[in-house]
Simulated scan of single mutants.
Amino acid sequence: MQINQDNQGRPSRIDSQAGSKRCARCGEIKPVSDFLRRTGKRSAKGSRRGTCRNCRAQLKKLEQTAAFPMGTDPSLEMPSREAAHSHFPTPEPLFKPQRRTTRALPSPLPVEGPDASVLRPNRQGKIRMRGRTDKGSRWHQEVDLELAVTLVKEHAAVVVNRHTIRRLYSNKAFRRYILARDRHTCFFCGGYGDTIDHLLPKAKGGHTTPMNCVCACNECNQSKADQRLEDFIGE
């Protein structure tokens, strides 16, 4: 017979021949099969937990009900604070903070910089264009000199140096700017507009710039489609 002490200082008897062990909570000597195996990395081979299955089931029930059932030994471990208050309704807060929906619009005037005439293509015959996405990530690509000059002249980009330009707006920022500039008024019919239309369609060489984009209602935008401004107004 081997005699050890548990975590509470009480003798814990382990009979290696009969395979019995004393529970650390109820103090009863029970077969080793009534104790769960330890699964930790530092646990010895064949070691068992100090609490029997019956006591562990009672503790789990106490945590779920947050109260001691009738006839339960009060010396058992008290339930956790979260379990003790789980049956009480959560009071509604007196003040709920509102999420901010207003965002600062981009500046209506482009940032002043060098003229587009200073642009010079690199050895590959391209101009480096950089900007930011809607989430703030940086991006860059190579564009033709003609496109770079058009973007600068139509106030969609500024010159950084003779080989680089920078886009002023991301996609969402550009849409907010156009709608705010035109005050959500359709350029064609004067009604309420919440879409953006290209005066010179992109299919015919137009670009997404402040000088080529206007606010339009959904009906006018679909009716115009890929027509030029002169053709659409002349109908």
Rank of each mutant, 00 (worst) to 15 (best):
C26H: 07
G46K: 13
R100K: 12
C189S: 13
W139D: 10
K202Y: 10
R37N: 14
E146A: 11
Y177T: 06
R42W: 07
R53V: 07
Q222G: 02
A116Y: 13
R25K: 10
P74I: 06
G136L: 06
K135L: 14
E142M: 08
A225W: 13
H198S: 02
R176N: 01
G27W: 02
R132T: 12
E63I: 00
S137W: 12
T39D: 06
Q2I: 04
A216P: 02
D34I: 04
P114H: 15
V160T: 09
A104P: 02
S12N: 04
T208I: 12
I178M: 14
G9M: 04
D231C: 12
S80M: 12
G206Y: 08
P97R: 04
L179Q: 08
I14P: 00
R130P: 08
C23Q: 00
C52R: 00
E112I: 06
R22Y: 15
R48M: 06
K172E: 15
R37E: 13
T150S: 11
G113N: 07
M1C: 02
C26W: 05
T208S: 14
E82V: 03
G113Y: 05
V159T: 11
S137T: 12
A24I: 05
S75I: 00
T209Q: 15
Q124W: 05
A83K: 00
H87L: 08
I29Y: 01
P74M: 09
C217T: 11
L62E: 01
K30S: 03
S47R: 07
S12G: 09
K224V: 03
A203K: 03
N221E: 01
S80L: 11
R138K: 04
N122V: 02
R162T: 03
M78L: 09
V111A: 13
Q98Y: 05
T65V: 02
H155S: 15
D182N: 09
P114C: 14
I178C: 12
L151Q: 11
K126E: 10
K202C: 07
S107C: 08
D231G: 09
L199Q: 04
N218A: 13
G27P: 07
L36Q: 14
R166G: 04
A156I: 07
A84K: 05
G71S: 11
M1Y: 00
R13D: 09
Y169P: 00
F88P: 14
H155I: 10
Y177I: 06
R128Q: 01
C26G: 13
V159K: 08
G234C: 13
K60R: 03
N171I: 07
D15E: 12
E142S: 03
S16K: 15
H155N: 15
A180H: 05
Y169S: 03
